[in-house]
Nucleic acid binder design. Sequence first.
DNA 1: TCCTTTGTTCGATGTTCGTAGAACGTCGAA
DNA 2: TTCGACGTTCTACGAACATCGAACAAAGGA
Lengths: 112, 112
Amino acid sequence: MKQARHPEPDEITLVAVLGALSDPIRVGLVRVLSDGRERGWGELRAPVAKSTLSHHLRVLRDAGLTRTRQEGTRCFVELRRGDLDVRFPGLLAAVLDAAHNDDVGAHVHTDG
Amino acid sequence: MKQARHPEPDEITLVAVLGALSDPIRVGLVRVLSDGRERGWGELRAPVAKSTLSHHLRVLRDAGLTRTRQEGTRCFVELRRGDLDVRFPGLLAAVLDAAHNDDVGAHVHTDG
DNA sequence: TCCTTTGTTCGATGTTCGTAGAACGTCGAA
DNA sequence: TTCGACGTTCTACGAACATCGAACAAAGGA
């Protein structure tokens, strides 16, 4: 569980962000995190295997959408809303709005 | 060159749109079309083979981002901005704005 | 009718992706 | 030190993707 790398704000690319958001599960994860609160990894529930969830969270992290913090043996994930809003104004809001209206990624939720 | 199918507005999905926009060439095509003017197929210039360009235009069409009209032996492509703005308000504007700032898909242009 | 133009489709190739299970590394607790 | 909990990484696999060149189909023009 070595420290994961996060892209700097100016390293975040539009294409990578849109690619990361082109999967229902990842959109669901972003939706869950969209209230700005940090979530524990184990708190996240998605209809995929643990390794697959880890993969999706990695894609989001690599694209610059989320930040993962490690505390002891467990991790906490949060949306990088501030960075994204500076980088791509209005994009996240539009995606979240659309995802809400269409109920995209509704099978992703949290225990907290 | 048979008539291509276009999804109805309510058949357009967020994930498909974001997936279609997760490629620099397709973002470039959308940017070229973003002034609302219709363009001739042969007018579009991208650094890929003809068949590959056809493929990308098909992805955009299938996702509901563009509409293709046929006139005799040639085709004309336009952005479905109205449909998209109704379906996903603010999304296209945010993407175009971000693409402009980062100069995404700049190697796609037009002869017209 | 034959040829040219225009864009699509096909076949092939190499890459990336989503998925899962198994093995692993790390940390805290017993 | 041994154990259990927590995520990551490895490995594998089928599906989807980006790409190209060649073959093709449709519509006009010579």
